[in-house]
Amino acid sequence: MNSTIIEINSLRKDYHVGEVTVHALRGVELKINEGEFVAIMGASGSGKSTMLNILGCLDKPTFGDYLLDGINVNTMNKDAVAKLRNQKLGFVFQAYNLLARTTALENVELPLFYNPKVRSKDRKEAAVKALEAVGLLDRMHHMPNQLSGGQQQRVAIARSLVNNPVLILADEPTGNLDTRTSFEIMELFQDLNEKGRTIVFVTHELDIARFATRNVMFKDGKIYRESAVSERLNAREILKTLPLEAIEEFD
């Protein structure tokens, strides 16, 4: 159960903008085990997104090694990395990134289209199952513009689940949502984590980070503190105490 899923050694990422070089990451060491629920925190511009994009194989580091599930990603070619994203990773974005004018079901099916081994019957079945897991079975034929922000994010989470990934990555998944909906998303993540999924997500909200099992704090492109969450919150319990009509959410 405690096998290592992510191992990062002295990772650096530089961006060159004209004459200026931005050192977004300046030597990061990180290890994440299977079954962990990690929150990456830090001020804006501290390198959280850069880190997550590299973890998600959307971007390549300037220097350093990244071992995902024992495979060194840096040595792989583009197509192999695409296959890795398709079969081992699930990505959730702050802005949901659903295809417009495409039903929830079709959006969730999308990753499986890029997997030649999945037959069309199994594809639909898997998509329905993923939508069921996020509690949106009754909305499967709705278009994104017919869904609330929270529901859209659930569809996006279903999409990240559909390929049965070893790792789910989420960049500020609750950033566009109100408090109650944020807690609902966290409830969903906690459920998934209990079922054994490894989840890494970025947030800058302290109370959201307390739903995770471990917090990793970034500052100026480096990890400056790592800690296990001592008093972990349970989203389901908290939701029970919140008033249904959440009026206080004008933040």
């Binding site: 998600g56 959307l58 583009k78 197509d79 695409a82 296959k83 994203r85 398709n86 079969q87 990505f91 990134n97 295809l99 999308l110 990753p111 890029y114 997997n115 999409r159 390929n163």
Partner: peptide
């Protein structure tokens, strides 16, 4: 472009 980015992020290769 964003759709292309999304398709790539879920496993679409350049040739796809």
């Amino acid at each position: 472009t964003r759709e292309i980015g999304l398709r790539m992020s879920i496993g679409g290769r350049g040739k796809d």
